[in-house]
Design a protein around this nucleic acid. Structure first.
Lengths: 224, 224
DNA sequence: CGTCGTAAACTGTGATCACAATAGTCCGGA
DNA sequence: TCCGGACTATTGTGATCACAGTTTACGACG
């Protein structure tokens, strides 16, 4: 990948690129939960030196997207347990509707148009059964909303939770197929945001989440 | 400090010790909010090489206990704004009572005794006006409870929030004096835990938090 | 054929160096 | 006194090496 550095500010540092790469691999499930990874193997895979990988991994560990075995200090992807999913669901179900409600107060036509475009992408990804594209688009949809809340602390919390939930989502697709998630509440959410209806946005996002989480729960309980 | 390494497992890595040191300095307000720090200065202060500091700082940045200026990539302690405090309050007021309620179901006499001992320490710190000791003991009290909830994800969230709130707490002491926080709800919480009263524990912790947060809010609004 | 021990490969951690970019300082000129 | 520009110090980032501990592979022995 060729990338031109314009200035120090807008240039993504290598460790940031590595972070994004691993994050994406984690969310899309390209690295299986429970599997062990190592700094050097990741570095080799991404064709960078171990140094920036080390930085990225530290960050991911702090965000609980990667786990570190306290006995031998080796890295691994956290495995999917029903208990973890339950806690993550609960937390998401609190933060994300709150962010949606706040966003409703700041929504404008630009945001609405953007959301409609993203949602069209989500639908097409679902139609094609393109898992990675669905995940990316769905993430973009939610965070386009959350970003508008203007609540950086809560938004960061949501980001961290989403990262931890990512691997679970892949399980859903793996078991019930790509059409398992077809019924989202995105249209409802868009309508509520357009009307500046904070409570409506809160309910729409809450419903969207809990439906998705229910599917994940079922998939996880079906088999670890 | 002399420390014997028994095995790789129980030995704290240097970067963990550095993390704890900076964390403590942040919480107790020894590093003022808004102030800039650097890897090498921290390393010199802690008499270690910049390398483990780098690791610790990455972690703290991920936890939003340190901020990194996107323009020049320099480190600083996040400054205290009313908006940030409001979001942190809201989040704490959701997670921590939840943890307390869960802990109530797992509480035993051992925990109660431990909490009573810690609370006595809190009270003595207040009596003496020993700010650092109060902060440490108060932290110990809350997390002795939360640990008992057996909810690692939520507990980690609480830990991250506490870390971000830490600097605000010092502001309270700086303005209203050490006796500004004298009225805590620890006794109430202990009673509820002893009775296995989940709702009581939830209410006690919620009351404890919101009182503290109110004081912080007043202190922050009085002057940045 | 199975089991155990030893050697090689691999792991995270820390130290040190190089480099480009920014911030700070100090001095000259108006 | 105040402003501007050159020089120096300091900054985060990345690369490379060393090291101790752990895991894995393999071959010898029973």
């Amino acid at each position: 990948m060729v990338q031109v550095r314009r200035s120090l500010a807008d240039s993504q540092a290598v460790h940031d690129q590595v972070y994004e790469a691993i994050r994406q691999a984690l969310i899309t499930g390209r690295i299986a939960p429970g599997k062990g990874v190592s700094l050097r193997s990741l570095a080799a895979e991404l064709s960078v030196s171990p140094m920036p990988v080390r930085d990225a991994v530290r960050r991911l560990v702090a965000e609980r997207a990667l786990a570190i075995n306290p006995a031998n200090k080796r890295l691994s992807v956290p495995s999917l347990t029903a208990d973890r999913l339950e806690q993550l669901s609960l937390a998401r179900l609190w933060v994300e509707p709150e962010l949606a409600a706040r966003a409703a107060k700041n929504a404008d036509t630009g945001l609405i148009r953007q959301l409609q475009a993203i949602d069209a992408d989500v639908d097409e990804a679902l139609r094609l059964g393109d898992v990675d594209r669905y995940m990316t688009a769905n993430h973009a949809f939610h965070f386009a909303i959350y970003e508008r809340a203007g609540a950086e602390v809560l938004e960061a919390m949501a980001g961290g939770l989403w990262l931890q939930v990512g691997p679970f989502m892949r399980v859903v697709f793996g078991r019930v197929g790509a059409d398992g998630l077809v019924a989202d509440r995105h249209a409802e959410a868009i309508t509520a945001l357009k009307d500046g209806d904070a409570d409506g946005a809160r309910r729409a996002i809450a419903a969207d989440l809990s439906e998705g989480m229910d599917k994940m729960r079922a998939a996880v309980e079906a088999g670890p």
